[in-house]
């Protein structure tokens, strides 16, 4: 139980995929203009991550021992088809969200955080439950980073940000400060 709790805390906060590993930066900078869009993209990512964790565990257990050289390509295929599935579901269930997410929904496919998740889980030898908790934690951490970033950016829209740094430069400044703040979690729970 402690082990699972640690995996969750580690994936969501301490080694936050976005702010500590710098994975998934494209949606982090691209879809964080508004809080509700960020929340929905975050939920979609959590879902894709959970499915990926499940699928990669199945692959690791039954397929890859026979053909280890297929690991990377099979993970990519799994992620791409999951995203396709999510895309179809969102298109049917919420056309407005589909339009709001735009290109970033298919881009979950190339979100390095998800491939990173599958590879980390394999490298660390996580079992099924551990892998799912890890995926959920990573997704929650990713959503948290998106939400914080969206909140800050919505507020700085109203601020008198100088024309020199408005836009992408400001996003990178904010991401840098956030990353420095998350350094405070470095090494959390490692001593005990």
């Amino acid at each position: 139980m402690d082990d699972l709790l640690f995996i969750f805390a580690s994936a969501s906060v301490i080694n936050n995929f976005t702010l500590a590993y710098f994975l998934g930066l494209c949606p982090f900078l691209g879809v964080t203009g508004r809080i509700d869009t960020a929340l929905r993209l975050g939920s979609a990512t959590i879902f894709v991550m959970m499915i990926t964790a499940l699928a990669s565990w199945c692959l690791n257990t039954w397929v890859l021992p026979h053909a280890p050289y297929l690991r990377l390509i099979s993970f990519i295929v799994v992620i791409a088809s999951t995203v396709q599935f999510v895309e179809m579901a969102i298109r049917k269930l919420s056309p407005a969200l589909f339009r709001a997410l735009g290109i970033f929904l298919p881009l979950i496919t190339t979100n390095c955080a998800i491939l990173g998740l599958a590879l980390f889980a394999t490298n660390r030898g996580y079992g099924l439950v551990q892998g799912l908790v890890f995926a959920f934690g990573a997704g929650v951490g990713f959503t948290l980073a998106l939400l914080i970033m969206a909140g800050i950016r919505e507020e700085s829209e109203l601020a008198g940000v100088p024309a020199l740094v408005r836009g992408a430069a400001m996003s990178f400044f904010i991401a840098g400060i956030l990353s420095m703040a998350f350094m405070g979690f470095a090494g959390l729970f490692h001593g005990s």
Binding site: I148, G151, I152, I177, L178, M180, A181, F182, M183, G184, F185, A186, G187, L188, F189, H190, G191, S192
Partner: peptide, 19 residues
């Protein structure tokens, strides 16, 4: 208590600033 650093006031305030 559980972190790698002995002091965390700076990071705690920055994190709460962020939210």
């Amino acid at each position: 208590t559980w972190g790698g650093l002995a002091e965390g006031v700076m990071y705690a305030i920055l994190l709460m600033n962020a939210v």
